[in-house]
Nucleic acid binder design. Sequence first.
DNA 1: TAATCGTGGAG
DNA 2: TCTCCAAGATT
Length: 356
Amino acid sequence: MDASAPQPRAADLLAWYDRHRRVLPWRALPGERADPYRVWVSEIMLQQTTIAAVKPYFERFMARFPTVEALAAAPSESVMQAWAGLGYYSRARNLHACAKAVADQHGGRFPDTEEGLRALPGIGAYTSGAVAAIAFDRPAVAVDGNVERVITRLFAIEDEMPSAKPLIRERVLALLAHDRPGDFAQALMDLGATICTPRSPACGLCPWREPCRARIEGTQESFPRKAVKKTGKTRYGAAFVAMREDGAVLVRTRPAKGLLGGMVEVPGSDWRSDYELADALRDQPVAARWRRLMLPVRHVFTHFPLELTVFAGRVPLEMQAPEGMRFTPFNRLKEEAFPNVFLKALEAGLEELQRP
DNA sequence: TAATCGTGGAG
DNA sequence: TCTCCAAGATT
């Protein structure tokens, strides 16, 4: 052990935070009280999602659903549409369920303890701690990817993720600034996001550069330790863009659970690694003279890549939508809760139909 | 414990 | 082009 290395102190982190804290739409200014509703919505949106991607969604969401009561009273289609494009759609379903629980069972006020928050849908170990600390200034720890990186470097924790999680929590709890728990939680995340970055961390600017074991040993970028994860096999499928003579397009809503659950799609086949394109017409939603697009739509999900072959066709005005499907007027397509993969397919299909 | 679950940007 | 990964939760 190197006896000359000092122990990390929360006070040094907070002093850095007071000078360098980021200004964010959901974050209260110094001295202001945080709004639990805004904090909660932001924390759900920020799960596995970058700040840059969240910002426009957050602003639109707040304008559309200003309070937890407004969100609870909204139809689910409206909530899913507001979330469309942001990904991980179970978050939106759980968010809506959580708003209803808060409105109906908690009088419109969020529980102000980690345990109370943890019992709500979509709120797990991280988010319960984050909301408790940030919105209610409770002495709770919020361990996200930033904190995992900062702490594993600070103490040179060799255990692979996610096995190291209990030890990380323990270390954060020992460091916690009990006089400023909310600021401490946000400071730890700001440090990870701006200084203690995954690659090329700015150790020279870090308030914890002296006590950091990894920096002392020169192994910063090797933390946190984690196993390499392998990507799944490519899946293939067909999607059909059927446009009626008046411009309306055939769509349907996906089942509530599973991949892209509760979102809207253009009809298509299952997605399988052994899908045979030669049999694609078996999967057509309605009979039509389909034009097959030469360039497939490529899309990458977390656990597998997808290649979607798009078929585009015109159908007569009197065509009835099959059971479970509907025609959406062209000028209302933008109001449908399409995930990006189906926006890509739709765009490709519509472009094809414009050609002579 | 290990899968599942989106998307876009950075290097 | 490819890999990583971003304020994770659920099953």
